[in-house]
Design a protein around this nucleic acid. Structure first.
Length: 460
RNA sequence: GGAUAGGUGGCAGAGCGGUCAUGCGUGGGACUGCAGAUCCCAUCUAAUAGGGUUCGACUCCCUACCUAUCCUCCA
């Protein structure tokens, strides 16, 4: 497998240790507001990546942080006149609920930054002791000049950063490039006690404390949106390598391209965002997963209504053939068709190209539709195995299965409907169809057979 | 100004130095009680501009122009 590594700025072979354990870390959200579909793009990709690696036989330990103390949370809390913990807890619950609704369930551990508070303090202490950080009137700063590799990940030149006029002039900093790792409390702000008085940690050191605690001083994959490359990931490298004394923090740096809308990055500050909840009112999680995976992960993707409509069609086509094949396969023992799976996998082997894989998959779907009538149960089962393989990590197929009891009820209704259709009582049979559709059950007549699946959204 | 990606048919978006991407859209047909889905045919004779290399370039090289992201909190 090969993958684009931001540090080396090219597609490189993905090599891992012999025991096939992958330690993976992805920067999670700051919990001060509901996530939008730009966030979804990143988290769905890493969900699919973790599941794909697991399907390939790797043991993936996937950790994500939650930034639950931060200026934005403080601002929000002040606006609502509530304690910061109430705000962060509310949006943490919101975030977890939404992740679940998007079928993102590959993360082994979500770690709120406040949980690793002791580690944060001990890291700052170490940095100060080793001379990498210094205390001022308003906080503790990391001294960038002490870390020559600063700028390597983002391709920034240290000197051009120094003269950068866009960096805030802060009298307390010895060097404008230095970044804060401990902020001393201002009146009215939440605080923790520390050797440097009351205050709170800076953003960058929250992550290094968590990775150090759960993944060690060197791990395999560090991921996040491309907007985190500078300064966040750059700062993480500077902090952790200064603490550990090692040459490498993460073996691979994987960054997802931004989601654009009308030619610009979707973001809170530009007020051009669409929340995940809003999209899920009109589309299924599968539709959104397909839409956001159907691109090169490290390039930008434009969001639009057409994109969602196109995805819905493709998800429908996949779900339709999936359920048709399933019906045809019956109880046939599942063997895997490796010729198909390998041809699909070849797209993932080179830079996890889900889009390329989908385009190949759609060609197979067309083939299967053509040959469906002539297929026997074994052939159907083989084709089905490829779809199951894809769905294992992409999660883009709507399956016609839920609890056994409701499945049985639906089958009962469909057999009644079949009798009505045979008797040409179409008004009654159509009433059953539209009634089921309102309950989120999609049905299609295939000659004398009827296939069905749960569509999640209510019928129009 | 610097860094990183790009500029392909109505849209999204691949690969490849000379042969169908794929999907959506559009037009027509088949099938169907109707929906839906599916299949067939067609549509689009695509490549930011200007040079160069070549028997031949969308694909390689150079130049110009343009777009987005980052250089400030941000997935």
């Amino acid at each position: 497998m090969k993958i684009y590594d931001t540090m080396q700025k090219k597609v490189v072979p993905f090599r891992l240790n012999k025991n096939r354990i992958v330690k993976m870390y992805v920067c999670g959200p700051t919990v001060y507001d509901s996530p939008h579909i730009g966030h979804a793009k990143t988290y769905i990709f890493f969900d699919a990546l973790a599941k794909y690696l697991r399907a390939q036989g790797f043991q993936v330990f996937y950790v994500q942080n939650i930034t639950d103390l931060d200026d934005k949370i403080i601002t929000k809390a002040a606006q609502e006149n509530l304690p910061t913990e109430i705000i962060s807890k509310r949006y943490l619950m919101d975030y977890l609920k939404i992740m679940k609704s998007l079928k993102i369930d590959s993360v082994n551990l979500y770690v709120p930054a406040t949980m690793e508070f002791r580690k944060i303090i001990s890291q700052i202490k170490t940095l100060v002791r080793k001379g990498y950080a210094y205390e001022t009137d308003d906080g503790v700063y990391f001294s960038v000049s002490r870390f020559p590799d600063y700028g390597k990940l983002s391709g920034q030149d240290l000197n051009s950063l120094r003269s950068g006029s866009r960096i805030d002039i802060n009298e307390n900093k010895r060097d404008p490039r230095d970044f804060v790792i401990w902020k001393k409390m201002k009146p009215g702000e939440p605080y923790w006690d520390s050797p440097w008085g009351k205050g709170r940690p800076g953003w960058h050191i929250e992550d290094t404390a968590i990775t150090d605690a759960f993944l060690g001083k060197t791990y395999d994959i560090h991921g996040g949106g491309s907007d985190l490359i500078f300064p966040h990931h750059e700062a993480e490298i500077a902090i952790e390598r200064s603490v550990s004394g090692r040459k490498i923090l993460s073996r691979y740096w994987i960054h997802t391209g931004m989601l654009n809308i009308e030619g610009e990055k979707m973001s809170k500050s530009l007020h051009n965002y669409v929340t995940i909840d809003e999209v899920l009112k009109d589309f299924t999680p599968e539709d959104l997963r397909y839409a956001l995976l159907n691109c090169q992960f490290n390039t930008q993707l434009s969001f639009s209504g057409e994109l969602m409509e196109e995805s819905r069609k493709n998800v429908n086509a996949l779900s339709s053939i999936y359920n048709k094949l399933k019906q045809k396969a019956g109880d046939e023992n599942m063997e895997s068709d490796y010729s198909i799976i390998n041809s699909l996998d070849s797209f993932l082997e080179y830079n996890i190209d889900f889009r390329g894989m989908f385009s190949k998959l759609m060609s197979y779907v067309s083939e299967w539709n053509k040959n469906l009538d002539a297929m026997d149960s074994r052939e159907a089962s083989l084709s089905l195995s490829a779809l199951k393989w894809v769905n294992e990590f992409t999660g883009v197929i709507r399956e016609g299965e839920n609890s056994a009891r409701s499945d049985d009820l639906i089958r009962l209704l469909l057999s009644a409907r079949k009798s009505l259709r045979t008797a040409k009582d179409f008004s009654s049979s159509d009433a059953i169809r539209s009634g089921l559709r309102k309950l989120g059950v999609h049905i299609e007549d295939q000659g004398s057979e009827t296939i069905w699946w749960y569509s999640d959204t209510e019928g129009e």
